[in-house]
Design a protein around this nucleic acid. Structure first.
Lengths: 346, 346
DNA sequence: CTGAAAGCGCTTACAG
DNA sequence: CTGAAAGCGCTTACAG
């Protein structure tokens, strides 16, 4: 591998000049520039990113923590972030929650620890900035993290002490929109399957959902409130339990589309027809929502735009850029076929 | 941030000794070790990975290229790789195919270029080794790549000049198993939807599928051979076209589960019942296969084990480790409910 | 076992 | 505009 010394020698200039010519920082005569460029080409020179990182104290990389690479939620986010980073000539080091294969779904502490471990790992890798997809982190965790690494943006969660560094849709409002959609269609006997208990976005959406319902005088009995974990399996288990208690509801809200799909499958096998007998509404508007049968009516949050803006904000902070960033990511329901008129319609 | 000089001073030793104590390379007296450890703790010292990288000429990071972070295929792979890497105290820099949003599904050249760009990006980032998920790369591309970076393992594709660095199931055999499953169930009027044309794993499975069928005297007319792209949308479009030509088949093979699911949805909306009227068999045994309705009979390839072994092999090459690696990743069909007896059964 | 020194490959004041 | 030099924070022969 050629080093900058080699190109300086070949170009007949000092290494300082070579460096200035190559990096574009500092001025060089047209003549010197040309000779350096020639030498670079001749030697097929590529500056060492690690040497550069050491002297500039900037690794040129951003860490991103996501709870899980599997599932259909985080992939599109990684995709966007990769694109943004590469457009800015930076790269991404990604980590997800690792650990004991089977953590119980209500073991918040284990999930929290996984997130903390993954983030710690990234910090130790000396990333310039950190993107973290909200999960089981407490506000105190976030504060502690921001204390250590100010260049951390929280995605899909808002932690009150540092709103500027949080990028998220309003999940509470989104939950309300779900409730309104159900109500508007004339459903009052409703069931629900929530996501991971300690995930903040889940908590917000369920809170909004229930309180909007309450506003209109409908209360979901505990026996019709199931807890899932955002996975197919969790959704299926919850749907099974729900069914065991009898079909005393006309619609169910699933806190994400994967669980909605699992529920449709479960109900189908049990011989209850969706949406004729029971309507279902999902959440996320993920890719599969258009391909379940029936197609899913679901709540869409612009998660990719959220991630892009969070990423750009971070890039601006870390490298003094001024990429445009949005702050509003309004949720909306997208109507398809899984939600039909209920008994109280019209 | 404390540097190793600070800890050396505090511990009252030379920086060489401090370095040996901290890194564990080279011997130090128990006494010195203790003092260094104390100093490390007192200063909360973390060695700079980039300085270390510069002097050891090893960045401690492995690049991984996957065609797409979205979809349900690559997520689980990233998950495994992250786990393996972190267990070895290394990290992952990931890149996926970026570029113009809408590349036509048969624009092999554009896909190939995307892969080449992503890999180039990773190489420039000076990763110690490279994991690449096979995609539109030609054998010549692979050879050129191996020439430049010998520490590259190819996943899910085999390129003949360097079998040692390829980790993949035998997709050709897998295609044959699909054909045998269909034949065994008494189907002879068959349709199929292939995946991305230029993806090698797709080509192999379709080749195996068709030639095994031919061995038993069944030939699928062109009019029943659709081409998809592994996505829901592509599968749906292909299924729609298939239906337009009439229902003159009793079973269809979809080259992955997402397309199978899209097909089931499409057929369902068109009023043709799966599996009563037409059976379907998928490929991958992805997470959703158990949650379609009917549940999917599908071909399972142990892709995670494949990725893990490829990753370990690379780790062994790059860092002189000797992690165990497997070489056999046998495919098998997993029977569920979407494939019923056909007219020639029994 | 240990310390002083050179080196990894860049960047960036500094003096000219 | 330019070159010589110091520095980024480690590691690793080398001599003792």
């Amino acid at each position: 591998m050629a080093t900058i010394k080699d190109v300086a020698r070949l170009a007949g200039v000092g290494v300082g000049t070579a460096s200035r010519a190559i990096s574009g920082n500092g001025s060089v005569s047209a003549d010197a520039l040309a000779r350096v460029n020639e030498a670079v080409a001749a030697l097929n020179f590529r500056p060492s990113t690690t040497a550069r990182a050491l002297s500039t104290r900037s690794a040129g990389m951003i860490g991103i923590y996501v709870p899980d690479f599997a599932g259909d939620f985080y992939g599109p986010i990684l995709h966007c972030v990769d694109r943004e980073l590469r457009a800015a000539n930076r790269h991404m080091v990604a980590a997800n929650g690792c650990g004991p294969a089977d953590i119980s779904i209500d073991d918040m502490e284990a999930h929290r620890q996984q997130a903390l471990d993954g983030i710690e790992f990234l910090i130790e890798r000396q990333v310039d900035g950190l993107l973290v997809m909200g999960d089981a982190l407490t506000d105190a965790d976030c504060d502690a993290l921001w204390e250590r690494v100010p260049r951390l943006v929280l995605l899909n969660q808002v932690s009150p002490s540092n709103l500027l560094h949080c990028f998220s849709s309003d999940h509470e409002l989104a939950g309300r929109l779900v409730a309104r959609a159900l109500l508007a269609k004339g459903h009052r006997d409703i069931a629900c399957i929530s996501g991971l208990q300690y995930a903040h976005d889940n908590a917000s959406r369920m809170a909004g959902f229930h309180s909007e319902l309450a506003l209109h005088g409908v209360k979901i009995p505990k026996s019709r409130q199931m807890v899932g974990d955002f996975s197919f399996d969790g959704g299926h288990a919850a749907a099974t339990k729900l069914l065991k208690k009898g079909l005393n509801f006309t619609a169910v809200f699933c806190a994400n589309d994967m669980m909605a799909m699992a529920l449709i499958s479960c109900f189908g096998h049990a011989g209850v027809r969706v949406p004729e007998e029971v309507s279902v509404i999902g959440y996320d508007d993920s890719a599969l929502a258009r391909y379940t049968h029936p197609r899913l009516t679901t709540l869409s949050i612009p998660i990719q735009r959220t991630a892009i803006s969070g990423c750009r904000f971070l890039l601006n902070q870390c490298y003094g850029l001024s990429l445009p960033v949005e702050r509003e990511f309004p949720p909306e329901v997208v109507w398809r076929e899984s939600l039909l008129d209920g008994p109280h319609a019209g």
